[in-house]
Simulated scan of single mutants.
Amino acid sequence: MTIRLALYQPDIPQNTGTILRTAACFGLAVDLIEPAGFTLSDKALRRAGLDYLERAALVRHASWEAFQAARASSGGRLVLFTTRASATLDRFQFAAGDTLLFGRESAGVPDTVHAAADERIKIAMVDGARSLNLAISVGIVAADALRQLGGLPVGVRF
């Protein structure tokens, strides 16, 4: 069992396309928690994802509640990446089965979602920096999680 990526109501189709492309290249599944701020047929999403979108393991959830119901039987921690966290990525230990949750580009996640997370982590940055682009953040976190857990999932090769 490896990690999963989860996007909470993403706003920007280019970021989601880039994340799906990254996930396809790393052999990771993506949970998309709707509603999104665009349709999945959006031209910008397709442009960013290129031909990798067909290779992406995407699971769509109609709501936060539907996502939580689907997760209930899978076990594993829900790890939220948020600028509101006190713990930092460089000190965090990932575990197989973790679901890595990322919020909306415009607003993060609501307090109820924040409270539901088992862990809350932020990416350390220099003083004065507010946040990174969502797709960049997902790439940093996914690469570090895979490194910690011993590399790419079974069946993925270089």
Rank of each mutant, 00 (worst) to 15 (best):
M1W: 12
R4Q: 15
L5V: 15
A6T: 04
L7D: 02
L7I: 15
L7A: 02
L7G: 04
P10C: 03
D11V: 06
I12M: 12
N15M: 04
G17F: 01
T18V: 13
A29D: 13
D31R: 02
L32Q: 06
F38D: 00
L40I: 10
K43G: 10
A44D: 13
L45W: 03
R46Y: 12
R47V: 10
A48T: 08
G49V: 06
L50D: 08
L50Y: 14
E54L: 02
V59C: 14
V59R: 12
A62K: 07
S63A: 12
E65H: 09
A69V: 10
A69K: 05
A70Y: 07
R71L: 06
S74H: 12
S74A: 06
G76L: 05
R77E: 07
L78W: 06
L78M: 05
V79F: 00
L80M: 04
A85V: 15
T88K: 15
L89W: 05
D90W: 06
F94E: 01
A95N: 10
L101W: 03
A107L: 06
G108N: 06
A116G: 06
D118P: 11
E119I: 11
E119H: 07
R120W: 04
R120D: 09
K122S: 09
I123K: 09
M125L: 15
M125Q: 14
G128A: 06
G128Y: 05
A129R: 09
L132M: 07
A135F: 11
I136L: 04
V138G: 01
I140L: 14
A142Q: 01
A143M: 13
A143E: 14
D144V: 05
A145W: 02
L146P: 10
R147V: 10
G150L: 15
G151M: 08
L152M: 04
V154S: 04
R157Y: 09
R157V: 05
